[in-house]
Amino acid sequence: MNKLWWTQIRAIIRLEIRKTFFAKRGLWIYLLALAPVALFTMHTIVALRMQHMGRSGGPGSEGIGQMNFVFAGVFQFFFLRLAIFFGCLGIFMNLFRGEMLDKSLHFYLLAPVRREVLLVGKYLAGLLAAIVIFSTSTALQIVMLLAPYDSPAISHFLYQSHGLEQIVAYLGVTVLACIGYGSVFLAAGLLFRNPIIPAACVLIWEAANPVLPSVLKKISVIYYLKSLCPVNIPLDPGMPPLIALLVSNAEPVAGYLAVLGLLVLAVVILAASMKRVRRLEINYTTE
């Protein structure tokens, strides 16, 4: 494929990837992505120590099935809602807003590149970075989750308890979360000067999803993601109501509809962003 727009997108990705992966100001995104890995690593270290000392009843003594629920909770409550959410905020809001603040966005706007192509190039670069960072984190979390268990238990989990399918599903949800939140925060970066306002609005909107009317639920990223999560977290009667509300999914949709819905949502948001970027003006003094 050597169409001009594709060549230009590749050139944009080449420039953006470098900035996204190696920027000092993006360090906190790595920390956020690696936080659950650290948690499961600590669990593994304690479990292996206890196994080594011949003790029972500590971490690792619970079955993989039980740990699977723990993982589902961490994934849905922390990783999706906070790590990927804020990580995408950091990556995608910076694609345009960060360059406005650096006063370097004119570099792209002085090149013979359609503004829509620029937007797609930047989005794909952000997406690539987000997917690499957060999918690696998901994979490492799973590795650390399974590390305390012996090979037969792991094999049983992977091949007879749908473990492999769950892993693929978690990686898929991670990718889709990056696609969804990426589009939302790219648009927010074009519309708002201060990232805190859109972040707070989207966070509240996503958190309120379970209590929203059915039509409004569909204008939300988390609605589709929760429907795709392979493990439902059992609602403990003793669970705080807020957490119970956040992890419950009253009206899950079929997997293919969830994927389609999320992709349509992302495309609609990107199309709206294209209209905005077409009208974008450089006025650094007001930034």
Partner: peptide, 27 residues
Amino acid sequence: GYSSQFDSFPRGLSGYEFVYSYLLLFG
């Protein structure tokens, strides 16, 4: 071609990379 007064550049680029990257955007 526009040489603006904006004195900011994409981060981390050398002079050559700055011009070369710009030209890659032309296709």
